[in-house]
Amino acid sequence: MRIPCPHCGERDHAEFVYRGDATVVRPDPDAPGAARAFHEFVHLRTNPAGLHKEHWYHEGGCRAWIVVERNTVTHEVMGAVTAEAFALSGGLSGRKANA
């Protein structure tokens, strides 16, 4: 599996550290129902069989956090953007992004 790092180009996945689902959003701790929202944020996952947007950390390269879109059934990597670009592009729209 090779991951196209936005900074370094295509690199072996062994250079990266996996974090997990990039579409869960840290809730507002002051909002009503925050305890439940944090439970969902920390524990519940869509866990799709198919396309999955996920955080990887390029430890063996540029040391940036990136968001990779990958097919969990075939391991095909569809593309990658920086975590910053993902957030600015509205990618953090919650669980829908992995639907």
Partner: peptide
């Protein structure tokens, strides 16, 4: 170490 339904690893 990554989410997978592929029944094979790397």
């Amino acid at each position: 170490g990554y989410n997978s339904y592929a029944q094979r690893g790397n």
